[in-house]
Write a protein that binds this DNA or RNA. Structure first.
Length: 843
RNA sequence: GCCGGGAUGGCGGAACUGGUAGACGCGCCGGACUCAAAAUCCGGUGGGGUGAAACCCGUGCGGGUUCGACUCCCGCUCCCGGUACCA
């Protein structure tokens, strides 16, 4: 029992690994040495290629997918958490007999590679490939069971050529179009900035005031699928309700009316969309965007207007900025005509109306819209009440807008109608006259996929003076992104590379130019999960294997992707289906959104200096300890507070488990004993073992609460520490208990459990063992303790037979001395019995 | 601003369907082992109260429903994620 048998594990002496292959019983080291066992177990997984899988129609498949990382350089603890969750689920499902696919790859295009290029003069491609090498090695260190033969790297032509191919198919199908869209323009660096590169309205590097600029860009018609994307959310029962709600709100279906207001002295009317036509009689002004033709026209020879409109342009393009900024406007001096009353209505130009969204004009009803109310109050515009509540006192719009539905007042012929009746009456009125119509509108906008960046997938379009935009034909794909470039941050190098953009028109053969814009990097991540099923196919984007593996049974990733990535991926799956390339319309059956990893209550970031590097920790404690800590510290969907002491505690538990097995095994393995022959104490431990099996299986398989699963195994190990029965039967009970602990912990701490499994006499890989099942016979209890409450407050405890009826339980409860003290001679009005738990006596 | 989420001992968290608040771990306190320390093992640990008990208070804040509320309802505060070019 002292450190006598340490001869194996002293480290990296030649030949240790072959001896470790027979590592068991008397060969077992008393001390837990992760630095020895982890490389050894990983070598065994590699040699047996046990995580490489193929389609097998005779077995139930399970596709377990974690969101692939952007290769930023080093593995972050957030990655380790995400991938441990996925690995635990994958290993558990495999032990449940499923044919499990768990792939990994690289979301390799993106801005950080360009930023690194500017800072350290290394080409984005070089930087990216180096990072991938480094991070792949780190992932292997943590023992994740990936099928590396399926690795995809999105910046490789083998991958993005199929994205380009798909785009040309969608182009021909009419799902792609070009229009102007707003970007953040840095006038000093002469580049387009991402929203996160704009800080307080200024470029992050130049410090120049950012301008909004409109440039032509490619769009995908995701709005064509808005209705289906919305409707099928209802079928995604394996998704968190919060994510479904966010997507529902993002798509934002509304039913409203599009109306035309004539404009004085103009032929073209002003068109607006409203979901509240019932408030039409309350319109007191109109607001248009700075780029609106009416505003532009009015600004001629009006320097004050021109100045205001130029101010509107110097503004960050994000929604958050738009909605929180001060709402400002100026009257144009032009009137619209109210379509019902003929009254003149002043038209204003306002900074919160954008030309790109809707019609670039809105009707304002300050009495019944809070934003309009604030604007009207600020500029002294009239506020008119046209809706009162259906019940109760009339609305008062002098202190704020009344935004509820109700009954119409001050609305002429429509007075007395409810909002709903008025909606229909007014919609019909316009429809009949042809100056308005009912319309379903979506908040969701088409997806702008052009980026004025270098490090991305080249857009496979050739612009020809004769033929216009022509998709690159299949035989000319891929359009390869040149990797050997000088990148200085002054716009994309592709725009300075005639050898890249000069080409012949595929249609007429005349001189033409390629697109130098690249795709939004969300494109690559919108279909990678499908490509994992057949990454080796160089003749087609997908093949029949996709329908064996898809849909993904379990998808795991950060909540921050709840809307954009997950919506785009759902959209792509529908596109693939409609092109006949895949069967399913939804890609992810079950979704687990992981919370963030915090330190000192804050998100880890370089600027705060509170980052934790997982690799040194794995070196110091072993990967299993890091995995265990991350699964134990919080349930996966909550944020996780990092704690060095917590890591230490996780390590201690593994040491205790190791030692418990060592001490047990050193005395030899026990003979099988029939459960019927056990004593009370032995039965009790055995019941705890089978309770633990049931608990852990439920926690991992259904609830995904790995923290409580681990807590349950800790409790069992604690109980085992107090169980010092060295009889043959006692030793058999302990053998069963320890084997159970090793099996149920193996998805979480796979390296240690593999070794312990062998020490306990197990054969082969733990990953190939069957998940244990609880023996119902072992779970039977004879007596239970129940709590007794008087008027909802605990006054005592009683122990009763497990099968006692309510009457017996009530009698025992009333007999309890402290309960009697509180009941006294009061009349018992009611007794509530919750079987096996509590009795509440109401007096 | 809008949408979604969160708040429980000194700390991370548990309490799953309205039924024993604080499982498990960390930290801390006490003890064993040791010349001593580390490691390890055993015990204690929400606050008040008591010799010990009884008992009282306690799940961000203010109300409500219920025999019973961390859990459900109404109204707030603060923190986090997303907000369409960060990934």
């Amino acid at each position: 029992m002292t450190g006598s048998s340490c001869r194996l594990a002293r480290g990296r002496a030649a030949g240790y690994s072959s001896r470790l292959r027979r590592y068991r019983l008397s060969f077992m080291d008393e001390i837990y040495r992760p630095e020895v066992i982890e490389p050894e177990v990983q070598a065994r997984w590699d040699e047996s290629r046990c995580f490489e899988v193929t389609e097998d129609r005779s077995r139930e498949k399970f596709y377990c997918l974690s969101m692939f990382p952007y290769p930023s350089g080093r593995l972050h603890v957030g990655h380790v958490r995400n991938y441990t969750i996925g690995d635990v689920i994958a290993r558990y499902q495999r032990m449940r007999g499923r044919n499990v696919l768990q792939p990994m790859g690289w979301d390799a295009f993106g801005m950080p590679a360009e930023n690194a290029a500017i800072q350290s003069k290394v080409a984005p491609a070089r930087w990216t490939y180096d990072n991938i090498e480094h991070m792949r090695r780190q992932l292997k260190l943590f023992g994740f069971g990936y099928d590396w033969s399926r690795e995809v790297t999105t910046c490789r032509p083998e991958y993005y050529r199929w994205e380009q191919w798909l785009f040309t198919r969608l182009f021909r199908k009419g799902l792609i179009y070009k229009k102007n869209a707003v970007v953040n323009w840095d006038p000093v660096d002469r580049t387009v900035l991402a929203n996160e590169q704009v800080i307080n309205g200024r470029g992050w590097r130049s410090g120049a005031e950012v301008e909004r600029r409109e440039i032509p860009q490619w769009f995908m018609k995701i709005t064509h699928y808005a209705e289906e994307l919305l409707a099928e959310l209802e079928t995604l029962e394996g998704w968190p309700e919060s994510v479904r709600t966010m997507q529902r709100n993002w798509i934002g279906r509304s039913e409203g009316v599009e109306l035309q207001f004539p404009v004085e002295d103009h032929d073209v009317p002003l068109t607006v969309y409203t979901t509240r036509p019932d408030t039409l009689m309350g319109v007191t002004y109109m607001a248009v965007a700075a780029e609106h033709p009416l505003a532009v026209e009015a600004a001629v020879e009006r320097p004050d207007l021109t100045e205001f409109m130029e101010d509107c342009v110097r503004m960050h393009a994000s929604e958050a900025t738009l909605e929180t900024m001060e709402k400002k406007g100026m009257p144009l001096g032009v009137n619209a005509v109210h379509p019902l009353t003929g009254e003149p209505i002043p038209i204003w130009v306002a900074n919160f109306v954008l030309m790109a969204y809707g019609t670039g004009a809105v009707m304002a009803v300050p009495g019944h819209d809070q934003r309009d109310w604030e604007f009207a109050t600020r500029y002294g515009l009239p506020i008119r009440k046209v809706i009162d509540p259906l019940e109760g006192s009339p609305a008062d719009v002098s202190e704020g807008a009344f935004v509820e539905y109700g009954r119409l007042v001050n609305s002429g012929n429509f007075d007395g109608l409810t909002s709903e009746q008025a909606f229909n009456a007014i919609a019909d009125h316009f429809q009949v006259r042809g100056n308005g119509r009912r319309r379903v509108n979506y908040r969701l906008r088409d997806w702008g996929v052009s980026r004025q960046r270098y490090w991305g997938t080249p857009i496979p379009i050739v612009n020809c003076g004769e033929c216009g935009a022509v998709p690159v034909p299949d035989e000319a794909l891929p359009v390869v992104l040149p990797e050997d470039v000088e990148f200085d941050g002054q716009g994309s190098p592709l725009k300075r590379m005639p050898e890249f953009y000069r080409c012949k028109c595929p249609q007429c053969g005349g001189r033409a130019e390629r697109e130098t814009d690249t795709f939004d990097t969300f494109m690559e991540s919108s279909w990678y999960f499908a490509r994992y099923t057949c990454p080796d196919n160089d003749g087609a984007i997908l093949d029949s294997r996709v329908n064996y593996w898809l849909p993904v049974d379990q998808y795991i990733g950060g909540v921050e992707h709840a809307i954009l990535h997950l919506l785009y991926a759902r959209f792509f799956q529908k596109l693939l289906r409609d092109l006949g390339l895949a069967r399913d319309g939804e890609p992810f059956t079950n979704l687990l959104t992981q919370g963030m990893v915090l330190k000192d209550g804050a998100k880890m970031s370089k600027s705060k200096g509170n980052t934790v590097d997982p690799e040194p920790l794995a070196k110091q404690y072993g990967a299993d300890t890091v995995r265990l800590f991350m699964m134990f510290a919080a349930p996966p969907d909550q944020s996780l507070e990092w704690s060095d002491d917590g890591v230490e505690g996780a390590h201690r538990f593994l040491k205790r488990l190791w030692r418990a097995v060592y001490v047990h095994v050193e005395a030899g393995l026990p003979e099988l004993v029939e459960p019927d022959d056990l004593t009370g104490a032995q039965r009790q431990i055995r019941r705890r073992v089978h309770e633990t099996i049931a608990k852990v299986g439920d926690d991992i398989g259904r609830r995904y609460t790995f923290n409580t699963a681990i807590a349950a195994t800790m409790e069992l190990l604690n109980d085992l520490g107090r169980f010092d029965d060295e009889s043959e039967a006692g030793r058999w009970v302990r053998q069963e208990a320890l084997s159970t602990l090793v099996l149920v912990l193996s998805p979480i701490v796979p390296h240690a459990c593999q070794m312990l499994w062998e020490c306990l006499g197990g054969e082969g890989l733990v990953i190939d063992q069957r998940w244990p099942e609880a023996d119902q016979g072992a779970l039977v209890r004879t007596a239970v303790e129940m709590v007794v409450q008087v008027k909802g407050r605990i006054r005592g405890r009683i122990t009763v037979a497990a099968d006692a009826d309510d009457g017996t339980v009530t009698e025992a409860a009333l007999a309890e001395p402290n309960v009697q003290r509180f009941v006294g001679d009061a009349e018992v009005r009611k007794v509530i019995v919750v079987p096996g738990k509590l009795v509440n006596i109401v007096v």
